[in-house]
């Protein structure tokens, strides 16, 4: 039982990372119908921004050595700017393009970011010692929980609550929900399309920056492709949850975190190498039962 609880906490922490990433992808999909695979590379950008640009294997912290508050602000700003740049340079000129075109463009952005990082930091994975103090274990009864997992869960809950308040209570948030439901109609009512889209990119940047910091603290290593599997899993989470539904993206993220963690824990050792294959098989099962996802967005269903 204790073992299962331990795994459950692991699952919540991993699910948090997937959920935050899925929210960033889901938000842009809701408004632009863009499946932004470059979102994972924004996470990579945030992670590499912590260190001195050099090809050394052991990374030296640059921004990462500042006080935590300064790190959070600086990394968030860098990733937000990167996200806004991808919009200005690539997605804005493609505003009237079809969703498949946008998705292909996001692959291009993804490769450009990865190769940019390769140029400045080299291809070899780097070890990085960032906020490693957060990896201490604290004991709750018979449970030993890494502090970082609690922080991850707390950060995720705070960001989700903040996003909810933003979407429900602020004029910009209400406009964003309206634009996600019917972009053209929102424009007819004076909602500035590019402002709403820019804001959505900025929010997705903040979410990506949070994942950068949490993920690096846990893994302690950097590679120029580290964001790719995160984007893939988050995209799968968005699909499980129901395309276009933010609550669905979060639910999908946590479900996927749960599945992956439990497979890792309980699969026979010989099969653990195929963990992701089992996880995705489970995803297929979920979609066979609920083809439009766990919490489908009514508007997307109507529009497709």
């Amino acid at each position: 039982m204790i073992g299962f609880l331990q795994h459950l906490i692991d699952a919540l922490a991993l699910g948090s990372i997937y959920a935050l990433t899925a929210l960033g992808i889901g938000l842009l999909f809701g408004i632009l119908r863009l499946i932004n695979f470059a979102h994972g590379d924004l996470i990579t950008v945030g992670a590499y921004a912590l260190i001195v640009p050099a090809a050394d294997v052991t990374a030296r912290l640059m921004i990462g050595s500042w006080t935590p508050a300064a790190v959070v602000v600086a990394i968030s700003m860098i990733v937000v700017v990167a996200a806004l740049l991808t919009d200005a340079a690539v997605f804005r000129p493609l505003r009237t393009a079809s969703p498949p075109t946008l998705m292909i463009a996001s692959f291009a952005v993804s490769y450009i970011i990865q190769n940019g990082i390769l140029m400045f930091y080299g291809a070899r994975p780097k070890a990085v010692d960032f906020w490693s103090g957060a990896n201490v274990q604290i004991t709750i009864g018979a449970l030993r929980v890494p502090l970082l997992q609690l922080i991850t869960l707390a950060v995720t809950l705070v960001l989700m609550a903040a996003l909810t308040v933003f979407l429900r209570r602020t004029p910009q948030g209400v406009q964003m929900r309206a634009a996600a439901e019917d972009f053209r109609m929102a424009q007819y009512l004076g909602v500035r399309g590019n402002v709403v889209i820019g804001l959505a990119f900025a929010i997705s940047g903040v979410l990506a920056a949070a994942v950068s910091m949490l993920y690096i603290t846990q893994s302690g290593s950097l590679t120029f492709q580290m964001g790719v599997p995160l984007a893939l899993f988050a995209f799968v989470a968005v699909v499980i949850g129901g395309m276009g539904s933010l609550a669905g993206a979060v639910a999908g993220g946590f479900l996927l975190g749960f599945i992956v963690t439990m497979l890792q824990a309980y699969l026979p050792p010989d099969l653990r190498a195929f963990r992701d294959a089992f996880a995705f098989a489970f995803v297929i099962l979920v979609l066979l039962v609920r083809p439009s996802g766990l919490l489908p967005s009514r508007t997307t269903v109507e529009r497709v």
Binding site: V174, R177, A178
Partner: peptide
């Protein structure tokens, strides 16, 4: 083209 998930007031 009502925003169906928004309230009437919104």
């Amino acid at each position: 083209h009502i925003f169906g998930t928004l309230t009437v007031e919104e």
